[in-house]
Amino acid sequence: MERDMLYDSGWNREELDYKALENQWHVVARSEDVSAERPTAVRLLGEDLVLWRDGSGRIHAWKDYCGHRGARLSLGCVKKGEIECPYHGWRYDGQGDCTLVPAHPDRHAPASDRLIFKHYAEERYGYVWASLVRPERPLPELPQWDDDSFRKVYAGPYHYQANALRALENFIDASHFPFVHAHLNGLPDAPEPLKKYTVSQDERGLHSSEISVFQPFGDHRGIPVTARYTYSVFNPTTAYFKKKTGEVERFCTFFNATPVDEKACIIWLIVAINFGPELTLEQILARQNTVFEQDRHIVESQRPARLPLDPKAEMHVTSDRLGFEYRRWLRELGEARRAPGQLEQTIRAVSL
């Protein structure tokens, strides 16, 4: 049986956006939510996956499927470091080998290449990351993770009925602040023009120069600030900003959008701040919850649901530079995956 016949993902697998994502790392769960005793069901790029831990605690991400009779492994359990199918009790070890068929315990276990299908899984920053095929980019890095002067807070997950790429592009767009986040991140009756900024690309992804904006409720303390944002896109569904409100104070956000399918995503955040030690967890989360709920309403309204990678499909202006370069980068990643060694030249028909 061909693997692609197991599920109908509802996503055209030959489209550039899918191709750009299938060989990338994506957050799919919090590490603490995958126990040693119970498997966890998640969905990535239209595929149903099962997360589980073997006897050493190592995380695994497989198709949520037992090739014996097609049952969901996520409904089973983990015994003695092996995952057990809920239907007939077949067990599999961390290598994917079938170790036990209870109805025939003395029989040599069947070959497992048609029974289970393994994907790639790693853990970092308290998250489980998965990739459907061998990932071609490394796990992204949160620069402040090992800096004890920064307090780290998990926010979310936020469930959007929207495309993950639309959600990430919204995250790296500063020009929506006065309108979507009125009186928090900008003034709707006095929106300030954004000065021209630059975007560079290196082996870690895309990076903007500083973008300066006035914000009347600029951080978790509720005070006005002039913020200077620097954005990075480390992977197609992982982005980051560093927000300076002076030479010392900084507010950083590590953003991940799980592409559940083409029209749904889950947003996971790590917020890192080195100011306001008196701030409570509730205060920090209240601001994040407000901002991402405001974003959700807009991103869910965007049409088409999937991010257009054709540069002529939507209008662009100078302040869209980072989003424009993000789309170009995704297109290149997708083209490289669809036709290795035969990159189409990206059409640069729009002046920004």
Results as ranks from 00 to 15, higher is better:
25 W>F: 02
345 Q>E: 15
192 E>K: 11
344 E>M: 13
336 A>F: 05
237 T>Y: 04
5 M>Y: 13
297 H>R: 14
77 C>T: 15
95 Q>E: 15
5 M>R: 15
90 W>F: 09
306 R>D: 14
204 R>H: 14
131 S>C: 13
290 T>K: 13
141 E>C: 10
173 D>C: 09
162 A>V: 03
77 C>Q: 15
49 L>V: 06
120 Y>T: 10
287 R>T: 09
294 Q>K: 08
269 L>F: 08
298 I>D: 07
100 L>A: 11
70 G>K: 11
193 P>V: 11
283 Q>D: 05
112 S>V: 14
232 S>H: 05
123 E>Y: 09
182 A>Y: 04
261 D>W: 05
260 V>M: 02
160 Y>T: 05
185 N>R: 14
231 Y>C: 01
169 E>W: 00
118 K>H: 05
306 R>L: 13
6 L>M: 08
295 D>S: 02
256 N>Y: 02
287 R>H: 09
29 A>P: 01
350 V>N: 07
193 P>M: 09
182 A>H: 05
2 E>Q: 15
157 P>F: 01
51 L>A: 06
243 K>T: 13
138 P>V: 03
248 V>A: 12
309 L>S: 06
17 D>I: 07
232 S>A: 14
278 E>C: 01
91 R>H: 05
284 I>T: 07
70 G>H: 11
254 F>N: 00
284 I>G: 01
281 L>R: 14
84 E>G: 06
140 P>A: 09
236 P>W: 02
108 H>G: 14
165 L>I: 03
222 G>Q: 00
294 Q>L: 11
169 E>F: 01
193 P>T: 10
145 W>H: 07
199 V>P: 02
323 G>Y: 01
12 N>L: 11
308 P>T: 06
339 A>P: 06
208 S>E: 06
226 T>C: 11
5 M>Q: 15
36 A>G: 14
163 N>S: 09
243 K>N: 12
253 T>I: 15
112 S>M: 12
154 Y>L: 09
225 V>W: 04
148 D>V: 12
204 R>Y: 11
35 S>Q: 06
276 G>C: 05
235 N>P: 06
276 G>P: 00
198 T>R: 14
303 R>W: 08
203 E>C: 10
40 T>R: 15
112 S>H: 13
299 V>R: 02
152 K>Y: 07
136 E>F: 10
279 L>E: 00
170 N>H: 02
142 L>M: 15
347 I>P: 09
110 P>I: 10
111 A>H: 15
